[in-house]
Design a protein around this nucleic acid. Sequence first.
DNA 1: GTGTTTGCAAACCTTTTGCACGCAG
DNA 2: CTGCGTGCAAAAGGTTTGCAAACAC
Lengths: 140, 140
Amino acid sequence: MEEAAILLKQKGLKVTPQRLAILNLLRNTKEHPTAETIYKKLASDFPTMSLATVYKTLEVLKNIGLIQELNVGEGSFRYDANTNSHPHLVCLGCGKVEDLDESVLQNLIEEVKKHTDYKLVEQKLYFYGYCPACQRKLSN
Amino acid sequence: MEEAAILLKQKGLKVTPQRLAILNLLRNTKEHPTAETIYKKLASDFPTMSLATVYKTLEVLKNIGLIQELNVGEGSFRYDANTNSHPHLVCLGCGKVEDLDESVLQNLIEEVKKHTDYKLVEQKLYFYGYCPACQRKLSN
DNA sequence: GTGTTTGCAAACCTTTTGCACGCAG
DNA sequence: CTGCGTGCAAAAGGTTTGCAAACAC
């Protein structure tokens, strides 16, 4: 049985083709797609699947901690199978969303802890700028 | 003439009571209100003002850089007259949103710059946790 | 006076919900 | 078989838009 199916079963969820497809799609991409994007990408394999099912599935996967929801500030959510609340780097030129690593995150958290008496639980960190390729385009 | 009016005039905008009220409200609070909250707070002074006007005004103020829009991840935007893209601290207990200072921000940005070749322009940083008061409530 | 802004209602877009049918276990 | 999951359509919630009337300048 494939890994995604095992993960679902472990959490006591029924393993349906739609759930497998959505989870696998997220686990195999670095693109942080929206619900709409996921829906369209799977439309060819699951022509009858509704957008509501995508949303319901994302909700379930989020609740059991297999994926996380990102809010880059676009009016719709993006989803990520990397559930660390790691920092994201958003390119203002081409719109792509990349990850920054965990080690950077730890340093950022340390810095904030020094300056607050909040008990920190998680964080959503988005840095916006231009990726190397877009920087080159701009300088032309 | 009051400061808010001067700011509007400088940007070539008509100075209307609604605009003044919204801008002043934002400049005199640390609460990061939503459009809805602003609307309700001003309802007693401006009973005929519509929510659409609040939104249109916020859009205008945002475009000329007098306020910024925050997305804490609640499904609605919050607004802030502090236009530095400073980090925010969100209390998971009581929902309040506080600011972290500029000096912390500079350290955070330095750390990220060390690890990326993006040209950074701005950032949206939200740290979630429990404020001291909510920590006390939880431990009871 | 003229063009911008307001206020209302309707439209919009993403996300959520209710419910009958269908499939996984 | 039993109940959870799906698909459809309708609803919801926040935000945006179109347009006529009102107002700033």
